[in-house]
């Protein structure tokens, strides 16, 4: 191997079906990742089953008990209309997770596919795809989001669409960069000499070898998406009330940070923990998927 090799990726055998099983065992040894995984599972279960938990309604108002701190019947306190904060955080979690996962899955699929094709084929295909990527990327994303929010009907799906449109070019660029570095490698040339089809090379050889940075990107991506939704809330074009969302709650609550900190601190903690967990899980997956990262 050349001294100045850049992205040193060990060639992997195509038929490594127990690669994923190995990875699973390795993942189990990573405490942070396991805890995060369990936390996220619990969170997803919790917010999905929220209607069955017997929580107070997230929209039920009580003018007699506005902006109260934590109390036995409202353990996270109440908001500016006397609504139960815990309940709002749980129901807000539904929205935030839905947006985060929905956007990142779409972004990953679209971005990876286009990045893979562009990087692998090169030439005109590459040029065309990358011109579109550059154009989309060059367009200031916040202006784009504000525009789209003005054009689209106000719904969760509009927000998902906006964030996917803004997000995929980044994924495509990253994937293409990885593919470019990989495709000149010996094992790809070898596969080509043996007569493997382009799609086989892309999906069986290149994709698995570029997966680990993409997985890190995916975890950060979910985090980023949840944050981006919060940013849209700041602009007043996020999830519409009375549907609660973490971003919206944090933005409203930050106005009262000095007197009623619980209004922004609790949703912030919920958001931060979720984002952290996705990141830890992403790290764990990355280490697990890449045998060279194994602890000695």
């Amino acid at each position: 191997m050349a001294q100045n090799s850049i992205l040193p990726v060990t060639p992997r055998q195509p038929a490594a079906s127990n690669l994923w099983l190995d990875a699973w065992y390795r993942l189990q040894k990573n405490r942070a990742a396991v805890v995060s995984f369990v936390f996220l599972l619990a969170l997803i279960l919790f917010v999905t089953l929220a209607p069955l938990l017997g929580l107070p309604s997230p929209t039920e108002q009580d003018f007699g008990r506005m902006n109260e701190g934590p109390a036995p019947d409202h353990i996270f306190g109440t908001d500016e209309l006397g609504r139960d904060m815990l309940s709002r955080i749980v129901f807000g979690g539904q929205v935030s997770l839905l947006v985060g996962l929905g956007v990142q899955i779409s972004v990953a699929v679209i971005g990876m596919l286009l990045g893979l094709i562009a990087g692998y084929y090169g030439g005109m295909i590459d040029t065309t795809i990358m011109r579109v990527v550059d154009t989309m990327y060059a367009f200031p994303p916040f202006l784009f989001a504000v525009f789209m929010a003005a054009i689209l009907p106000p719904s969760v799906w509009s927000i998902v669409l906006v964030l996917v449109l803004v997000g995929w070019p980044w994924e495509a660029r990253v994937t293409r960069g990885l593919v470019l570095a990989l495709k000149e490698r010996e094992f790809i040339t070898a596969a080509r000499v043996v007569g493997a089809s382009n799609w086989r090379i892309m999906l069986k050889h290149i994709l698995p070898n570029s997966l680990s940075p993409i997985i890190v990107g995916f975890s950060i991506g979910i985090a980023g998406t949840i944050m981006a939704e919060a940013g849209l809330s700041f602009l007043g074009i996020g999830i519409r009330p009375p549907t609660p969302s973490w971003g919206g709650m944090i933005d409203k609550g930050r106005q009262y940070l000095q007197v009623y900190p619980h209004l922004s601190v609790f949703p912030s903690i919920a958001l931060a923990l979720t984002v952290l967990a996705f990141n830890f899980l992403g790290d764990g997956l990355r280490d697990a998927l890449d045998p060279r990262m194994r602890k000695d």
């Binding site: 929209t59 108002q61 003018f63 209309l81 106000p154 007043g236 074009i237 519409r240 009330p241 009375p242």
Partner: peptide
Amino acid sequence: EAIVAQLKANLGIDVTVRIGE
């Protein structure tokens, strides 16, 4: 949000809120 809740309670009608710039 408070007004919409009162319209629901007192008139039984469904009103959604739209926040605009």
